[in-house]
């Protein structure tokens, strides 16, 4: 008899618990984990054994409402996994060999032997959503900072590069899906910008020219990359500035 009374109480307790959990879940920030398919680049691989080191803040990169703290923000967009997935796919196809380093290159760090190590980071990120601009477009703009160093951490080149992605609002597309698509477009743009301009970075071009075995590689990545490195770099910067202007 006792069990007949307690059974409904347990069900009631469970229902209240589930309801409370649902209500509390509704109070927390909305998490958008950026997901997308990133194609491999179609190009002659640059004959370099490249190492890559993703710093912790890059591999777990996220952004949220800049007017609030992370805890107060009603939404958080995680781009870290998508960043790593995109750069892994791009660099694997762009260079003859890609190696993930065991640690950040430094004189004391034991690492695999490669020609150079690339260390990417997200320097700045800006976004615009229709609620801010009254334009029915979601936009994401990122500025990357790249360091190209030797295995022992000696700097070879350091440069910045911008990337931009946008997606219009669409009927039956949720805000999360629109932000995800804008982020994927920005990542694809970052890949396109890097792939077409890597050998045009003056320090990178000079470093590659200084290595006889790599001399032919400078012309391999982009059509029209046969002009002088200085001019090409200027062209790349103009492209970046154009993107910034469009913001």
């Amino acid at each position: 008899m006792r069990s007949m009374i307690t059974a409904p109480d347990n069900r009631l307790f469970s229902a209240v618990l589930v309801l409370t959990a649902m209500l509390l879940a509704g109070c927390g920030p909305t998490h958008v984990k950026v997901e997308g398919n990133f194609p491999a680049p179609l190009m002659e691989p640059v004959p370099l054994k490249l190492g890559v080191w993703y710093p912790e803040e890059f591999a777990t990169h996220e952004f949220f409402d800049e007017a609030k703290s992370r805890r107060e923000s009603s939404w958080v967009v995680n781009t870290g996994d998508a960043q790593v997935a995109m750069w892994d796919t791009l660099l694997s196809g762009m260079f003859s060999e890609l190696t993930h380093m065991k640690g950040r290159p430094s004189p004391s760090q034991m690492n695999q032997v490669v020609d150079a190590v690339l260390i990417p980071s997200v320097d700045e990120l800006q976004y615009a959503i229709p609620q801010h601009t009254n334009v029915k477009v979601y936009e994401i703009w990122m500025r990357y900072r790249f360091e190209l160093v030797t295995v022992r951490g000696k700097p070879i080149a350091e440069w910045t590069m911008s990337a931009y992605g946008k997606t219009p609002t669409a009927f039956l597309r949720s805000d999360q899906a629109a932000v995800n698509l804008a982020a994927v477009m920005a990542l694809r743009d970052a890949g396109a910008n890097f792939a077409t301009n890597f050998t045009r970075v003056p320090e990178v071009a000079a470093w590659m020219q200084s290595k006889p075995a790599r001399r032919g590689a400078a012309a391999a990545t982009a059509p029209g990359a046969k002009a002088s490195p200085v001019n090409e770099s200027a062209g790349g910067q103009a492209g970046a500035e154009r993107q910034e202007d469009s913001k």
């Binding site: 398919n37 194609p39 491999a40 680049p41 179609l42 694809r188 743009d189 890949g191 396109a192 910008n193 792939a195 077409t196 492209g239 993107q243």
Partner: peptide, 12 residues
């Protein structure tokens, strides 16, 4: 566009 990435992106 995917099969010719990155040559038909808005930038390129």
């Amino acid at each position: 566009v995917n099969s010719l990435y990155p040559w038909f992106e808005p930038r390129t």
